[in-house]
Design a protein around this nucleic acid. Sequence first.
DNA 1: GTGCGTGCAAAGATTTTGCATACTA
DNA 2: TAGTATGCAAAATCTTTGCACGCAC
Lengths: 153, 153
Amino acid sequence: MESRIDRIKKQLHSQSYKLTPQREATVRVLLEHEEDHLSAEDVYLLVKEKSPEIGLATVYRTLELLTELNVVDKINFGDGVSRYDLRQEGAAHFHHHLVCIECGAVDEIQEDLLGDVETIVERDWNFKIKDHRLTFHGICHRCHDKNDDVDKE
Amino acid sequence: MESRIDRIKKQLHSQSYKLTPQREATVRVLLEHEEDHLSAEDVYLLVKEKSPEIGLATVYRTLELLTELNVVDKINFGDGVSRYDLRQEGAAHFHHHLVCIECGAVDEIQEDLLGDVETIVERDWNFKIKDHRLTFHGICHRCHDKNDDVDKE
DNA sequence: GTGCGTGCAAAGATTTTGCATACTA
DNA sequence: TAGTATGCAAAATCTTTGCACGCAC
């Protein structure tokens, strides 16, 4: 069976890019941390564990390349750093995020949710939507439960 | 009648902050460019026109203060800089943005749109929503019309 | 050998901080 | 006069770039 890495490799090749060892190591880190929203520095440190000779600039260049190819999304939660999020294969839409303002956790919502809203925006604002970013800020279920516990004590 | 500046002044005073001339100049620039999504540097240059002695650090500190007080929202469209957007008074929700990937224009949507979606998220993910960010990326109506013109030629 | 990719270090860009000074209640 | 707020410059952060070297076809 064709693996995710293989498909990414093909995608690179189709645009005359190579999947070098450094690029592969970077992609593997992203695959292994799909749930985390890693910063470039995070990726760098993780790649370095297995390939200590890699340079930070290479990680930046790889992430930029993957962003261009739509393999990853570059996202920004308001802290000073960019984070990189692997796109779901075949996903028509970018997933959404729930950012907890108490513990900082970031959860993902894969469901679409915005279908109706997009229809309205395209019609009423005459805007051709290509992509979207939706992030909710609030209290996650874990912190919510924790607070309940405290209340009870 | 009480002006917008007056109300912001009161809000500052209620938290023991002063509306100094520099802060007032900064707020005035934001009021005069409400549609514009200015970066800190933009604000600095505009404030400097009327108050040349102001320092960039003061602008940053003022914008940070206004963000804390929820007078402005700090937003980020993916270019490296933070932009500052005056909150609509009395608006229950932060407005949304339409970013044109062709001309870079940023339009605003004041309508809510997310009521139903928020209900679903709060219920199904047990997440207490405090705020949200929704940005659509695509082709604005101006570029869309422009492209039509070209097609016709 | 040509060209792409890399590592390193330096440069750039944006934002924050330290500190002496100025202002205000 | 005590406490804020400011301006300047330096520092800190994150990211990009220049350049010489290395590797693959």
